[in-house]
Design a protein around this nucleic acid. Structure first.
Lengths: 226, 226
DNA sequence: CGCCCATTTGAAAATAATCAATGGAAGTGG
DNA sequence: CCACTTCCATTGATTATTTTCAAATGGGCG
């Protein structure tokens, strides 16, 4: 039962520039058939099990893709930020719920129309396969992180991934500490302690609760490998 | 940098019977263009970074897909058993190394030929996308397992997944305890202790080191959820 | 038959989770 | 606009699970 996943154009996965240009170009053709929608904080985009009628692209804001386990534990499979696609990999229904973390605007594409376009334009279906490949690669990186990294290594990797989405060495964290914990397989307290430690060692500086700057990127990279 | 992944026809991912029939049928067309190869125990199929010239299908035996971290820790991304495809999702080069766990026979397909076939036969490329979707879904399940499950929950899930590949309630474990640990994000010792506990509570019985039977499947299912 | 390597088991140490309390920011309503 | 309320974040102390270190057992392969 496949589900939603994210790939941004400034992807966290390194890819030859030419290829991502192709990807951006051919998918730009989709924008004509999309409708813009807006979600308020904590508003659901879809629920797990809903018929997967649409694809989405985040324009502004942030969305979390999450599942709730039998005993109440929550797992966040993905954060979708500006530029990310949601639901490209769904089968008949979504396997995750998606909720806005902050006020968010998205483009909503009819899956049916996208598939019709893709059938005519091989370049579009090729782009979709590329996006799935990148999603798979990202999922593998995360498996490695979740299976073999310590708390600090996970936090450091997480911050570096987010920082790749901006050019100014800053990181926006619209989500709560609990969200981050559920994403990294840690508790809120462990996340908070790691942040405090990074602050006191001068590796990061905080500018409001939801924005911070990476003062020593090299030191952070060191922390990702033990 | 995408890599290899596994999907069997008796997939661990539940899918409507009609769909998997389509998948099996259209991919059977590939068998004509494949060559059979054999690997001895611990022999590499390919290394990380090798040009991804081929796809493979396991006929008999078992293969592990693994990466080695900077400090020597090893991560196993996937076990490929009979029926599984390897390398379908690779880009230009393989992102994982693949090694035979025991003596293994595979079919080797030229990637170029498969892609030519897929370009002519939309059903084939559709099947490839389906396989990638299933691979992505499996990767998500594993992220959940690695991020939010205890040692015993991981072992129980692992054994149940393997048991779905056979109809007789038995499980073959061609890999070592260390392999299993590297796959589940645990140490060899923790894996061994969990097995001992399952044996002493009568949930599993051992028939040789590399084969066991699940005596109380329901009890094992209970252990996957806390 | 014997050696070697994987496994099992035990005890100690470390990492992260849990429990608990305080502090602070954001949002609500008067 | 301010005060109140609520939720989120931080910090501390304790507990639990898993890892690490170490030794002994056992099976499989030559």
């Amino acid at each position: 039962m496949p589900a939603a996943f994210a790939v941004s154009n400034r992807s966290t996965v390194r890819r030859p520039p030419a290829e991502s240009a192709v990807l951006t170009d051919s998918l730009a053709a989709l924008d004509g058939i999309g409708a813009v929608i807006t979600l308020r904080r904590d508003e659901p985009l879809f629920r797990s099990g809903d018929c997967a009628e649409f694809y989405f692209k985040v324009l502004k804001g942030a969305v979390r893709g999450c599942r709730v386990l039998a005993d109440g534990r929550r797992h966040i499979g993905e954060f979708f930020l500006a530029g990310d696609f949601i639901g490209l990999d769904a089968a008949e229904s979504y396997a995750f719920a998606a909720e806005a973390i902050v006020e968010t605007t998205l483009i909503r594409y009819s899956r049916r129309k996208v598939e019709a376009l893709a059938a005519e334009e091989p370049r579009i279906s090729q782009s979709l396969v590329e996006i799935m490949r990148a999603g798979l690669a990202a999922a593998r990186e995360r498996m490695l992180l979740l299976g073999h990294m310590t708390a600090m290594e996970r936090i450091a990797s997480f911050l570096l991934n987010l920082s790749e989405r901006r050019s100014d060495g800053r990181v926006s964290l619209p989500m709560t500490r609990t969200d981050i914990g559920d994403y990294l397989g840690l508790t809120m307290e462990t996340v908070s302690r790691a942040f405090s430690q990074l602050k006191s060692s001068g590796i990061i500086t905080q500018h409001g609760l939801h924005e911070l700057a990476i003062a020593k990127p090299a030191a952070l990279v060191e922390l990702t490998k033990p």
